[in-house]
Amino acid sequence: MIAVIQFPGSNDDRDMLFAMKTILGAEASLIWHQETVLPAKTEIVLLPGGFSYGDYLRCGAMARFSPVMGAVQRFADAGGFVLGTCNGFQVLCESGLLPGILLRNRKLHFLCQNTAVRVERSDTIFTSRTKPGEVLWIPIKHGEGAYYADTKQMQRLEDNGQILLRYCDAEGSVTEDANPNGSLHNIAGIVNERGNVFGLMPHPEHAVEEGIGGTDGLKILGSLLDAALARRKA
């Protein structure tokens, strides 16, 4: 059972549900931000994109304090699988489930475009359906997606292999030109040290159908689903 958290201002909640239920055939439902517990059978928590609480103050800053986030925190602490895209990534950073923060895009503008990201590791629960070095095309759409952390933290991310996706060009080269928003080290997505919480700016739920954004997003969502099924069997 997949819990898609719905904050007031979430936008991609129903798209995430569509990707999981209609495309991947998983059991999923929307969980309102006022809930204080997750459904008992929850195996995956998804924090969708959008503008939770209007993204006033800072993106994700207020969603972090909503009642459901306490439950998400406990779920993650117990080793549950959590994935946040875009605003969900921002919420994860604000709530300390992931290190760092997402800053205003380097060129200030909101950016919506199909983006190439290189998979750095495929030995994780979020990328098992990919190959290392593989280039995925997944759209981004955000105004504040420039990943930032201090030098020490950046070093830790690199040393621990926590960076799972980096912005790259069509050939997979990680270059400054291919960095759409000014993220440090071209970071598009990072995982926590334990490996069960993943945040990424690209929207895999918008790349799940041939003809509507392509299907590269399924590789990430599908990997996660595989992991949940494997855990169920174990």
Binding site: N11, D12, R14, D15, F18, A19, H109, F110, L111, C112, Q113, P139, K141, H203, E205, H206, V208, E209, I212, G213
Partner: peptide, 11 residues
Amino acid sequence: RQYDQRVQGNT
């Protein structure tokens, strides 16, 4: 590109 062209997943 300053507009979200993707949300609702129908584009």
